[in-house]
Nucleic acid binder design. Structure first.
Length: 294
DNA sequence: CAAGGCTCCTGATAGC
DNA sequence: TGCTATCAGGAGCCTT
């Protein structure tokens, strides 16, 4: 499942392979893939055509391609299974190909290494999608104004995050997944950061001390940077990579998916608990359940 | 208004 | 063998 590190790998691929290319045509093969574009698939395709895309940007799990000199951007979210692939245009369609973007340079010979490729949005479970939006002065698409900066953003405000935790009547994993407080963290990296911090997922945040918040943030950043480092090495020149469905970082996971396996710190069998229509993995010894309190 | 829960979707897998 | 149930889960939206 693509979380911040996976999306950043995709962003780097887009920066390398599609920046400054002009859109020649767009094919929407599944309407659900553009459901956030309320004017519909035809409008999406027509309005994209002819624009040159800029350098891909990212906030949390969202990424977007600015359209040069237009004040607009193509916003992308990969959902659970979305992929943005740069593929030779003659390559056979993927089974779950939803959107195809052709570039003008494939029609000429001036494209160099980028020639002959197109951008494909492939998504099995269709939770992801593309859409076109106006951008604000800082380039942010207007529909994601409510998404907080992510922990790898130099302008992320640690102190404001701490104060938000203190203020809220919530628990720590809910807070980590709340994209309006901190973006880019999903179920996997939440469990990993909590394990590293020795925190139980249901611990209330109201009593967090500043050192506790800062330690948690440190672990969030560490685990994301570690995943990012591995993702970088698996980068393939013809893909805007990240097969979102797990893979390269699996070997490095300390908590997620390790039910019944020994805790890598203390050897106690790890547990899985149903939580918010998903699962939480934790060590029952290292990550004690907080005492019930008001 | 904040917090929690529901729902969209497809395919792999388990169980009978 | 072939069916049904379960699980994976991001985030908008609805309810409490």
């Amino acid at each position: 499942m693509p979380e911040l590190p996976e999306v950043e790998v995709v962003r780097r691929g887009l920066e390398r392979w599609v920046a400054h290319r002009a859109v020649a045509g767009v094919e929407v093969l599944h309407p659900r893939a553009v459901r956030r574009h309320t004017a519909g698939a035809d409008d999406f395709a027509h309005r994209l055509k002819g624009h040159r895309v800029g350098v891909a940007r990212r906030r949390g799990k969202y990424l977007w391609l600015p359209l040069e000199d237009s004040g607009q951007a193509v916003l992308a979210h990969l959902g659970m299974s979305g992929q943005l692939l740069v593929r030779p245009h003659e390559a056979p369609d993927e089974k779950h190909l939803r959107i195809r973007v052709r570039f003008a340079d494939t029609l000429t010979s001036a494209a160099g290494a980028a020639g002959g490729t197109e951008l494909r949005f492939v998504d099995q479970r269709t939770f992801g999608g593309l859409s076109l939006h106006d951008t604000s002065e800082d380039g942010l698409p207007d529909v994601i104004a409510h998404i907080a900066r992510d922990p790898l953003d130099p302008l992320f405000d640690d102190e404001a995050f701490h104060q938000a935790l203190r203020r809220k009547r919530t628990t720590v994993k809910r807070a980590l997944l709340d994209q309006s407080l901190i973006s880019g963290v999903g179920n996997i990296y939440a469990d990993e950061a909590l394990w590293r911090s020795r925190l139980h997922y249901d611990r209330p945040t109201a009593g967090f001390t500043r050192p506790r918040t800062l330690e948690l943030l440190g672990h969030v950043r560490d685990v994301m940077n570690a995943a990012l480092a591995v993702g970088g090495t698996s980068f393939d020149s013809l893909y805007v990579n990240v097969n979102g469905e797990s893979g390269y970082f699996d070997r490095s996971l300390d908590a997620y998916g390790r039910e019944g396996l020994p805790c890598k710190r203390c050897g106690t069998p790890m547990r899985r608990r149903p939580w918010m229509n998903r699962s939480s993995y934790f060590c029952p010894k290292c990550q004690r359940v907080p005492r019930a309190s008001s």
